Simulated scan of single mutants.
Amino acid sequence: MRRAVRSLVIGVVAAALAAPALARAPHRILSMNLCADLLLLQLAPRARIVSVSHLAHEGAQTLFPGRDAGIAINHGAAEDIVNLKPDLILVGDTSTPMTRALARRVGARVVEVKSANSLAEARAIILRLGDDIAERPRAASLVARFDLTLAALAARPAQRRPRVIAWSGGAFVPGAGSLIDDIIAKAGADNLAARPGGAGSAFDVEALIAARPDALLYGAERSGPPSLHNAQSQHRLVRRLYARRSIAYNDVAATCGLPQSADAARDLRAALDRLPTRSLTP
């Protein structure tokens, strides 16, 4: 009898402790950041999402078409917070004092979704947001698939290690400490922009030709399939050298820390394996 009573007491206490946590589970989530949008759409049931940012549709169209259909959009304005009355607001790395003040006014909590600079950080961000919105099991499921994808890559080392640059006609070139740099490394390639003296800066045609990468990587348009027309450079020598050595990657998955970021590494490995083996000649 005592054991039964003790078990009952423990059960009641456990339920009492769990109740506040359940009460705090957000049911009206508003996202004001693209990367947060794309995570939220994968983690939370539609009924708990009151709004995503106006940027969400293009990213969703690339990753999971239609998942954002019917969800209100916001432009990060004060009226969006006041009118939609969320109980949780997702923002990027920085949130303005106005956002926090309005959140207090409507009784909402503000959660900052950090930027991912590596696949390990992406993994942690997914789990953390799962906790923040009371969807840990769903987050754990997505991370399990993420881990399996990367484990499969690690179990099959690349036969060669091509030298690449994520280059779009001299625009900013991501170097060491960026998510795309880690994706490149996991795919089994060497990011030339991560070497000393070349990281995170403009890379003109002359510098590109001098570096002689085995392939050029460029972010595909979010609203359409990868195409060589996405590449900004039209220099005749670049076109001739890299006509068959230009690889499109999903710029959303390579910019935001998402479950699909692991897929980006897998897909890049497959594309790198298809590169011609002949040497580059000007």
Rank of each mutant, 00 (worst) to 15 (best):
V5H: 02
R6C: 11
R6H: 11
L8R: 12
V9T: 14
G11H: 12
V12D: 13
A15Y: 10
A16K: 02
A21M: 05
A23H: 10
R24C: 05
I29Q: 02
S31C: 05
C35V: 07
L38N: 00
L38E: 04
P45M: 06
R46D: 14
A47E: 13
I49Y: 04
V52T: 07
H54V: 09
Q61H: 12
L63K: 01
N74F: 06
D80V: 11
I81A: 06
N83D: 14
L90T: 02
L90I: 05
M98H: 08
T99L: 07
T99C: 08
A101C: 01
R105I: 09
A108T: 08
E112C: 06
N117L: 12
E121Q: 11
R123F: 03
R123S: 08
A124W: 02
I125F: 01
I125R: 02
I126F: 06
R138E: 10
A139S: 09
A140S: 15
R145A: 15
F146K: 00
A152Q: 14
A155V: 15
A158I: 01
Q159A: 15
R161Y: 09
P162T: 07
V164F: 07
V164K: 06
A166M: 10
W167Q: 11
S168D: 15
P174L: 13
A176Y: 09
L179N: 01
I184Q: 00
K186T: 06
N191M: 08
A193M: 06
A199S: 15
A199P: 09
G200N: 14
A211V: 10
A220C: 10
S223H: 15
P225G: 02
H235W: 10
H235I: 02
L237H: 03
L237E: 11
V238E: 04
R240Y: 09
L241I: 11
A248E: 05
A265M: 11
R266G: 03
A271N: 11
D273I: 13
L280G: 06
L280Y: 10
T281A: 14
